[in-house]
Design a protein around this nucleic acid. Structure first.
Length: 648
RNA sequence: GCCGCAGUAGCUCAGUGGUAGAGCGCACCCUUGGUAAGGGUGAGGUCGGGAGUUCAAUCCUCCCCUGCGGCACCA
């Protein structure tokens, strides 16, 4: 048998017999490595210790110290162990798939009775039992027909389908955990005892469609999380609690920002506090757009279906539109309208009024456009997914050759807005042409090149989302990362060659002939509703001073201080600060606690001493101490802080 | 839309086949207290909606609505 050469991370190469396994390689190096090794990377692929290596390769051996491979193996083994536990307890349950996901895994089962939360405890106990058996994990490659016959004989129809779907040139690999067997790509650990028995937890049961297809069987999915040790598991559970505390639905109630109720699902009732933040953010965006060279417009909410037919939305999105039928006594026919789900067709109507010249372009048309979409009931989620919302929407009508400069200009504006709102960095995703699309390849070439060049010119790299563009053009998406590491896709820029065509938008070029403008659909926040939700969660309710609904509460310590408290509030209000008095018959401890819970950034306490000196005792949210300064100083200082980040 | 779970006072939640309870909040009284809950008294509920079973339903059954967790969707 010919030898192969394996190159180690330190650059040294050794020769081994063809078909050597990483386990044997480890053993050839040292006994301790042979014991500690859990898997290998062979030319970048994650490699099971049992798999033979057939050609020269770079090899890295992994131990439990290597987080990436270790966690992947642990979670993958846990998925199998869970499936095995389920079949040991309920032999009639059919198994399907169980991949590793962020922080854990899931496994989908077909079972008549849904799993209950109590079942999870039973399964967990069985899993621990299996781990403690320290069953060996072995693997082999089967003939496709044998695998199909095997699964047919064992009444595992989902597995049959999976085997059939494996491309002909890929091996059909089987894994055993003890006597329990599963179709699996691998790799895995060497025995079940290598999985930490105290660092995993089954989290929830949920329905999930077989192969993600809503027309197919609904399966029962069990989610689990798994880590290398108990502390990591605990840390993760603590993180979940943190996220729970930041939940904007909870904070929205506690801070009296908004509510929703069942008569208007997916629609927001903004309370005075919430509306203050909302309008503050909207005013900020309005200023940003003015600086950015946009004109602002406003278009109708209720629009005849004829326009939606022309724009193509009626065909595609009719089911997701709120339809308004009007019975007019004198009308010959019933008029069917739709609440606008988006603004672009209306903006083209404004564009089309009057002849446009190339001198008018680029024309940047912005609207805080109030849109309604009949979102599927299961999609609704607080402010994050609603049926009535306002976009910071704009359409840039431009010539093809302006796409690049307009894109660059937009990214610069977006970066400034995100920075002002407390997000220092963001990621860019670039989606190029999908399979089915409108427009010629030359036009797509130009548009894609322009978007990429503009992104780079603005100083950003991007991740490629191949084939994910809209049918009408390529798009950029902008993703924020919040304070606890969660991603939120907010901004977008989409090139559109189609809508100007459908709605017959034109301009007169230098050559005196009519041309088609290109439309750039773009938004920075996305929707105000959702973005406010993100802001609330990002700041855990502690909004920056300029956005805080109640910026200052002036609280009396003794009732003799009340007149000065009221005077202080007036002085703050006169300086443009959102201030309230708290002269209730309560102790200062009580008032401090209440307003701290309510996330008021500054509390000014006033007692007898302050009245005499015309001072205030300033306490900032999250700080323990307080500082006594004169009322005048406090007003000057807070007025400066209250200015929005774009104000001089 | 699909699967599962849930809906009791403003909020968080307990509870029962014989029309309901706690804490917080709210109102009033006492207290004037120095930086995260002072004390007392009191008001407050068609138990999500509808139908059914029953002598009797907040409780059991069915349908619907809404919410929550996923899945699917997201112009």
């Amino acid at each position: 048998m010919a030898d192969i050469s394996l190159t180690f991370p330190d650059g040294n190469a050794r020769s081994y017999p063809r078909g050597v396994t990483p386990a044997e390689v480890a053993a050839s190096i040292s006994n301790s490595l042979a014991k500690k090794a859990i898997s290998a990377s062979v030319d970048g692929s994650h490699w099971d210790l049992q798999w033979p290596i057939e050609a020269d390769a770079n090899i890295t051996l992994h131990t439990m110290k290597d987080d990436g491979p270790a966690l992947e193996l642990i979670r993958h083994d846990l998925a199998h162990i869970m499936a095995r536990a389920v079949q040991e307890i309920w032999p009639e349950v059919r198994v399907t798939i169980g991949p590793v996901i962020e922080n854990g895994w899931y496994y989908d089962f077909d079972r008549e009775e849904p799993f209950t939360p109590e079942d999870l405890g039973v399964i967990e106990a069985k899993m621990k039992e299996i781990i403690n058996r320290r069953d060996p994990v072995t693997t082999e490659i089967w003939e496709r027909d044998r695998a199909i016959r095997y699964y047919e004989a064992n009444n595992e129809p989902y597995k049959v389908e999976l085997v059939e779907a494996i491309p002909g040139d890929e091996p059909v690999r089987m894994y055993w955990h003890g006597h329990w067997q599963d179709l699996c790509r691998g790799p895995h650990l060497q025995h079940t005892g290598q999985v930490p028995a105290d660092a995993f937890k089954l989290m929830k049961v949920a329905g999930a469609y077989w192969r993600g297809d809503s027309s197919r069987q609904m399966l029962q999915r069990i989610y689990g999380v798994g880590f290398k040790n108990r502390d990591d598991l605990k840390a993760y559970l603590t993180f979940l609690e943190e996220a729970e505390k930041r939940d904007h639905r909870r904070l929205g109630r506690e801070m009296e920002l908004f509510h929703m109720q069942e008569e208007a699902p997916g629609m927001v009732f903004w309370h005075p506090n919430g509306w203050t933040v909302y309008t503050e953010l909207r005013d900020y965006m309005r200023r940003a757009q003015r600086r950015g060279g946009y004109v602002e417009v406003n278009t109708p909410q209720v629009v005849d279906r004829k326009l939606w037919e022309r724009s193509g939305h009626w065909d595609k999105y009719q089911e997701h539109m709120f339809i308004v039928e009007v019975e007019e006594e004198h009308a010959q026919e019933k008029r069917m309208n739709a609440l606008k789900p988006m603004n672009c067709p209306c903006h083209v109507q404004i564009y089309n009024h009057g002849l446009k010249s190339y001198r008018d372009l680029p024309l940047r048309m912005a609207e805080f456009g109030s849109c309604n979409r009949y979102e599927p009931s299961g999609a609704l989620h607080g402010l994050m997914r609603v049926r009535g919302f306002v976009q910071d929407d704009a359409h840039i009508f431009c010539e093809e050759r302006q796409i690049e400069s307009e894109t660059k200009r937009f990214i610069d504006m977006l970066a400034e807005v995100y920075r002002d709102l407390g997000f220092e960095s963001f990621r860019v995703k670039f989606s190029d042409r999908p399979e089915t699309r409108a427009g010629s390849d030359e036009v797509w070439d130009k548009a894609e090149r322009a978007l990429m060049a503009a992104t780079e010119a603005a100083g950003y790299s991007f991740e490629l989302n191949p084939g994910e563009g809209a049918f009408y053009g390529p798009k950029l998406e902008f993703v924020l990362t919040d304070a606890i590491g969660r991603d939120w896709q907010c901004g977008t820029l989409q090139v559109d060659f189609v809508l100007p065509e459908r709605l017959d938008a034109t301009y007169v070029g230098e050559d005196g002939a009519k041309h088609r403008p290109v439309m750039l659909h773009r938004a920075i926040l996305g929707s105000f509703e959702r973005f406010l939700g993100i802001l609330i969660e990002n700041f855990a309710g502690r909004l920056p001073f300029w956005l805080a609904p109640r910026q200052v509460v002036v609280a009396s310590i003794v009732s003799d201080a009340d007149p000065f408290v009221l005077e202080a509030v007036e002085a703050l209000k006169a300086a443009g600060i959102r201030a309230e008095a708290d002269v209730r018959n309560e102790k200062i401890n009580y008032k401090v606690r209440e307003h701290s819970v309510g996330k008021v950034p500054v509390i000014l306490a006033i007692g007898q001493r302050e009245v005499e000196d015309r001072t205030v005792s300033m306490r900032r949210l999250g700080e323990k101490g307080s500082r006594v300064i004169t009322l005048d100083e406090a007003v000057t200082q807070l007025a400066a802080e209250a200015r929005a980040p774009d104000m001089p």
